[in-house]
Design a protein around this nucleic acid. Sequence first.
RNA 1: GGGGGAUUAGCUCAGUUGGCUAGAGCGUUUGACUGGCAGUCAAGAGGUCGCAGGUUCGAUUCCUGUAUCCUCCA
Length: 874
Amino acid sequence: MKSKDIRQAFLDFFESKGHKIVPSSPIVNKDDPTLMFTNAGMNQFKDFFLGNRVPEFRRAADTQKCLRASGKHNDLEDVGVDSYHHTMFEMLGNWSFGDYFKKEAIDWAWELLTEVYQLPKDRLYVSVFEGDEKEGLNPDEEAVSYWKNHVPQDRILYFDKKDNFWEMGDTGPCGPCSEIHIDIRPDELRKEVDGASLVNMDDPLVIEIWNLVFIQFNRKADKSLESLPEKHVDTGMGFERLCMAMQGVTSNYDTDVFTPFIQFLEKESGVKYTFSYDKEAKSDMAMRVVVDHLRAVSFAIADGLLPSNNGAGYVIRRILRRAVRYYYSFLDVQEPMIYKMLPLFAEAFQEVFPEVKEQLEHVRKTVLAEEKQFLRTLSKGLKRFDKLEVKDGVISGKDAFTLFDTYGFPIDLTRLIASEKGYNVDEAGYEAERERVRKIAQEDAEKSFGDWHSLMEADGVEFIGYDSLYSDDSRLVKYRTVEVKKKNQYQIVLDKTPFYAESGGQVGDKGLLWFDDEKIAVINTQKENDLIIHYVNKLPENKKAFIRAEVNETRRSLTENNHSATHLLHAALRQVLGNHVQQRGSYLDDQYLRFDFSHHSGMSSDEILQVEKIVNERIRENIPLQESRSIAIADAQEAGAMMLFGEKYGETVRMITFNSDYSIELCGGTHVPFTGKIGYFKIRSEGSVASGIRRIEAITANKAEEYLNKELGTLNEVRGLFKNPKDLVGVVNKLQDENKALQKEIEKLLAAQAGALKGDLKSKFENINGVNVLTARLPLNDSNAIKTLGYELEKEVGDSLIVFGAEIKGKPQLMVIISKELTTSKDLHAGNMIRELAKEIKGGGGGQPFFATAGGKDVSGLEKALSKVHSLIA
RNA sequence: GGGGGAUUAGCUCAGUUGGCUAGAGCGUUUGACUGGCAGUCAAGAGGUCGCAGGUUCGAUUCCUGUAUCCUCCA
């Protein structure tokens, strides 16, 4: 079976069992601050398990793009070494939200594997949780009883908490799990060693393919477990492994998920893939690394992420760079290569994940730019490497770390190049330095979360901020303490709130909460999945009080101007530049708005003017806001709403329209009731943020007015200085021309003056012991002119020693010039000489044997210094 | 968010006890050689040494701040 068909069969099977097939959520996680990337199929359903939200359906199934290259699950350094670790993989999963439980999950899993997929039953083993005394948990005999219907007792294996108790993180939903393992070793080996003894033993050919998690507990911050009111099923089956088992191969990389790309690499690099996992088979490893990382990076970029130097973008950058490092070192490729694979890649996934194909150009360009950048970093690092001081054939740990930390030159490359040159690297020193720096960073970023303290049950949180900025009767639902840099902050959740939580680029509201007479300031509002979290600096005395909540009205109102203006801008950009313009990021608060969008080149000033003009026309048309707060996604699409890649949309969406022929967007933010309220729109800057991405910063309303007034003020001031001429530009031009002409004139005069001076000085040379000596105090006040004069005289007279003194800006300055031949033949040194002379002017100086300068504080000593020259050469 | 580094000609970069008329290669302009192209030779143009302060007689060089980029860590 082709991988494509295997995936489809899974979805079809669960659809036939009453599951809703949902699309994969983006691989980049935007809603959950504790998670940068989607790392398991259940991420998008987390809120259902936590009870924060009630699902619209009780059964779901999908294939989910996952990435494990940061945080708790980090497989990055294992990728390429073995046959089964990946950064990016697909997780097939089926879920029950308080619906079916262990029996159905087990029965269906077995049915799919053995009947639909026809995997041989005698190669399958199942594992169950053996219980844990400390936690007070019994063995999962319930699961065993259902498994007995399908498999003999000796294929049901018990394992401890480490293998068979699944937890999402340090806290949160968890429960026992039951796994299905498959033994894909050849028959001879199976006869020799019983497969059961190899389950969970890290044998690459006896592997887990499906994990059925039975969520029935919640892990609290104090480590205790509490039972959940509703029980859920969460399963995950690694798609690539399943394909391996189905296609009769022994490595994920030998399935048709990967082989086309490995073949591409063979062609591109001229190196043959030999299917080896030997430590020395570096080129094989490199190919696996590249084909794996290609997937991670491409999906992440297609979902809207850009490589950058912090956060999720940094993880992506690291992955891509690891791939470059491998092909650079082991495939002997020094040119960007990964971007060339993208058309093939986009084609391969166009049905299940169309986002790459739809943005092929953008992804390609981004990858190419990043590859180029890193290859550049590498060549810089190589240069740096040549300058290292190597003691006793050992590169110090500190140097190795500096190469890595400052110049981004990876340690494994340092090692490789060192060994090529016959050097060693002080690895222990490197690790020590790395640890030291890591500690500093960690201490600084210390942040710890306390438990949520619940005060009341609430079905979700009601946001009333679209209609009102006040609430009289909110209640405190729960709160927790967050320690940041040794300071306590508090997060509180209300049952209903007018506070808008930061989302879609719009900043979170600020404002006040009144608990009886106690006033507490809300300093920020953020979202965590569906919770609206208010950040405050203290907790109220009376936590049970009815709360009066007030959003800072001015700030919200100014922010809304910028948000609505952003929509108008987006539409105007598409009108002026074309439909390829897509929002790539946005930020807006009460001060200004920032809008990033896809576009390949800079905007001309004419285009910018046009965009401003269109937006301002729409403002003056005073278009009323049309809000559809809850509309089916299909209807919104029908209406022509813009959909963004990497954005996760629910079944129903909120649609914001300003004239259905002009701007329709899906948006959760708050907006002006009429566009006229925006007042005026002005673009402050347009520039590039990444390849293919432009950024516009703009202002509205009061800020636009202030800006214009300030600019006009400056202009008026300038005009005043010129006595209000009719043609200001002409006047300035004329002034500049005149200035240039005058400068030339001065230069000419100075040259003439210096020429006269030169003739005069030439006659004053004295020959002392074969040296043409000249000492003079010059009436010049430009050290550059003196220097030039001296050089010219030296050239014309030859074999000379020239000492000049001058007063420059009230300070004495000395200069000594000695013909180069004399510095050796007569052993004269201008630098040494000037140090002697400088004493007379209470100063110091220095220079080379043939040229030196000095300055001082005492002008009256100049003559004395000049007369001293003769005594020094006698 | 924190640490390290960089910023010098159109581009890629040199430039250490602070004083060298701030350089190289590529590119560019002009001229010569050649039937044309390519090329060779010769000459020239091109620099507020990121920005703002400070230390010093003197700062591209040292110090502080700031901007941008690179890089590592969270």
